[in-house]
Write a protein that binds this DNA or RNA. Structure first.
Length: 363
DNA sequence: AACTCGGGGAC
DNA sequence: GTCCCAGAGTT
């Protein structure tokens, strides 16, 4: 920062905090100062918008109101509460961290940076957020909002989606941080980014920092922050089988350490080159669960987008011809009635056809 | 430093 | 359709 910017620091702080006190949203986790509650909210909020998190936050705290209750649970109920929220490693890591806090720290969440940061699922952002909000520690958060606000305010041209840029934004965040009330300051910057200094069509007309904003002064606010372009994602075709044995269907559990780890799904996989989906379905089921099945009909086709690829999947109704389940890949399996499916956590892609499956079968 | 990991809201 | 979201862990 140059001298002029340093001179403005105190005025920027004051204007931001005043705006925050008048305009901040009333959010459920702002009603609490319990470290556990704050931690739950921050785990859910990473890469996830506020309005998406709110109902999950209420349900999670109702079922697991304390770190002891979370640590005492099996993983499956935790994943069930996380179902649909995505990035399931957050739930797995939080569950692991809760066990560590209970077993190693007497159920008291550590309030120093090094020990808290060492817990699974806790990175620099979560550590700064929880410790500043719950324990008033002077640690500045650097998230997507913070990078966008400061990139515009000071015309920082480091691309926000490149890891090396992090430490550049961190310097600005720490210089601006209000050490008398770091938790409120951190939330104020993020709130400004969410409500005013938005990615597109920022409301500079009502921004409390407009007169300090370098990018606005130079009339190119939306040119900031800079971003590195990402390559397009591949598109895969898949086949999935709903295998009936009487009135029960086969579901399998995914390995915990991988994508969608610990969740349940109907067995499926990718088509080989020029392979027909029906043939792929039978082949994949033979490979993964060692069953010989007959394809009865096509239930539906679904599209789904993940972060790094997209899929088109054909879902087939199958009947068991012969064989007993021998798993090659899945870590567990169950034959279940359709009305029991709701007890298991499934990925979003499976929910795109489960409702249709239940509806068709009820006819 | 780049890649992996979800799902949905806003446009 | 695209972009982005109160990011962390792995390689």
């Amino acid at each position: 920062m140059n001298d002029n910017q340093i001179k403005n620091v105190e005025r920027i702080r004051k204007a931001l905090l005043k705006w925050y006190h008048l305009n901040s949203r009333k959010l459920p986790w702002r009603e609490s100062k319990k470290p556990y509650d704050i931690w739950v909210s921050e785990m859910m909020l990473q890469q996830t918008q506020v309005n998406t998190v709110i109902p999950y936050f209420y349900r999670f705290l109702e079922k697991f109101p304390s770190i002891q209750s979370l640590a005492a649970s099996d993983l499956q109920p935790v994943l069930k509460l996380w179902e649909g929220l995505g990035y399931y490693s957050r739930a797995r890591n939080f569950h692991k961290a809760a066990k560590i806090v209970v077993e190693q720290y007497g159920s008291v969440i550590p309030d120093d940076r090094d020990r808290f940061l060492a817990l699974p699922g806790v990175g620099e952002y979560i550590a700064a957020a929880v410790l500043s909000i719950a324990f008033d520690r002077p640690l500045a958060v650097v998230d997507g909002n913070v990078k966008r606000v400061f990139a515009r305010l000071f015309e920082i041209d480091a691309p926000v989606n490149v890891s090396a840029s992090y430490k550049i934004f961190k310097v600005f965040a720490n210089d601006l941080l209000d050490i008398d009330d770091p938790g409120t300051f951190n939330q104020a910057v993020m709130e400004l980014g969410a409500l005013v200094c938005k990615p597109t069509k920022p409301d500079c007309g009502i921004c409390p920092l407009s007169k300090y904003c370098q990018a606005l002064k130079n009339e190119h606010v939306e040119a900031f922050p800079g971003k590195k372009k990402k390559s397009p994602v591949p598109h895969y075709f898949m086949a999935v089988g709903v295998i009936f044995k009487g009135d029960k269907v086969l579901i399998v559990r995914r390995p915990e350490e991988k994508m969608l780890g610990g969740l349940w799904e109907f067995p499926g996989g990718r088509l080989q080159a020029k392979e027909k989906a029906e043939n792929a379905c039978a082949r994949i089921i033979a490979e993964k669960v060692n069953l010989n099945v007959a394809i009865e009909s096509k239930l539906t086709r679904i599209q789904h987008a993940y972060t790094h690829f997209k899929i088109t999947a054909d879902i087939f109704i199958c009947t068991l011809v012969s064989g007993r389940v021998r798993r090659n890949g899945p870590t567990d399996h169950q034959w279940v009635y359709l009305n029991a499916l709701e007890k298991y956590p499934f990925p979003g892609s499976n929910h795109k056809f489960i409702s249709k499956l239940i509806k068709e079968r009820a006819k």
